[in-house]
Design a protein around this nucleic acid. Structure first.
Lengths: 179, 179
DNA sequence: TTCGTCATGTAATGGGTTACATGATTAC
DNA sequence: GTAATCATGTAACCCATTACATGACGAA
């Protein structure tokens, strides 16, 4: 997760750690936070793996800043992390969506469909639990479960809206055999 | 969190670890999961702290089962964990709501109001970020932020519904000086 | 000159998971 | 008899946070 965030931000422009942290809490901060104690070691790891490289600012050396640039290898890593077939939980999906612009429309549709599948399954589980427990639980837990159902249903609707938009934009692309 | 869950479930009835785990994934499982590697040590900790005690089943000793019962001290601990003034993030709030029946109406209102405050602040932050970044970000990230706003607003509405219900049920209770 | 924030980093700790290990009982 | 599930536990690991440590620069 951190690696994806760092690489994704460095794709936009080269930055140093402090800047990355600010961008992270700014744009991605709603659904995700990170501390320095975890950011700096990550950058180091990425540097060792040659996914990012340090730029030495020749002029403008007022301050000790380690500016990093993403490498070709880093770009490949990012691509893989983004399209990776991992769980489509909230945080992961949100992060991937924040970097959707780096994906082909085809891959975007794929991710959205996986998210939809994940949510659909979750909804089914919630509903089955509701049926199972409805008679046994108190009003508050019931409210909680029902709200879970509503929230998940709303999320699915949203994903479907995104899917519809994505498909309508890339309509002239049958590529695969359509039955 | 785990401790609260374990104590809360043991308030209902005495259980052994395996049973606790099942109840946990059943009722509370939607927003929270726990593994044995974390459950059993927690039970041990609670036992050492004298918050729970082991019951030795005299008859029915077919199987090696460690059944635990909550103690008076455990009840106090639970009460404190429940009304504790900690962050009102999703998981914590959900867990507390699942144990609302053990609180006085007054304390329920208090928790709900704290949750509302938390969400209201979150909403304000989201909106301010939206204003700040709207022109700078791509359509997908924008969708993500807007969906965050919608979701949070819906959550607030739900909490307010719960608050209204809570207050209407306990109307004949002015207790404190009402201005 | 002192306070805020820019800037980087490490060590200790926390809170959890996964994988492993064991074995009894039940259902087929 | 053998597979599933009941039942308990430990050790290694992972990922992250908090707290600490350091110091330069800019603005008041």
């Amino acid at each position: 997760m951190i690696e994806m965030a760092v690489l994704g931000l460095l794709k936009e422009r080269s930055m140093h750690g402090y800047e990355l942290k600010k961008e992270l809490t700014g744009q991605l901060g709603q659904f995700w936070q990170i501390s320095y104690g975890s950011l700096y070691p990550t950058i180091r790891r990425l540097e060792k793996a040659a996914a990012v490289e340090r730029i030495f600012p020749v002029t403008d050396v007022k301050r000790r800043k380690n500016i990093y640039r993403i490498t070709d290898l880093g770009n490949e890593m990012f691509k893989q992390l983004l399209s990776e077939n991992s769980t489509m939980d909230d945080a992961r999906f949100s992060m991937k969506l924040a970097f959707f612009r780096y994906l082909k429309s085809e891959d975007r549709v794929d991710l959205l469909e996986r998210r939809r599948a994940y949510l659909t399954e979750k909804l089914a589980e919630l509903r089955s639990k509701l049926r199972t427990y409805r008679e046994r639980i108190d009003a508050y837990t019931l409210q909680l479960m029902e709200h879970g159902v509503d929230t998940t249903a709303a999320d699915i609707a949203w994903v479907e809206k995104l899917l519809a938009e994505e498909k309508s934009h890339s309509e002239p692309k049958p590529s695969r055999a359509t039955t």
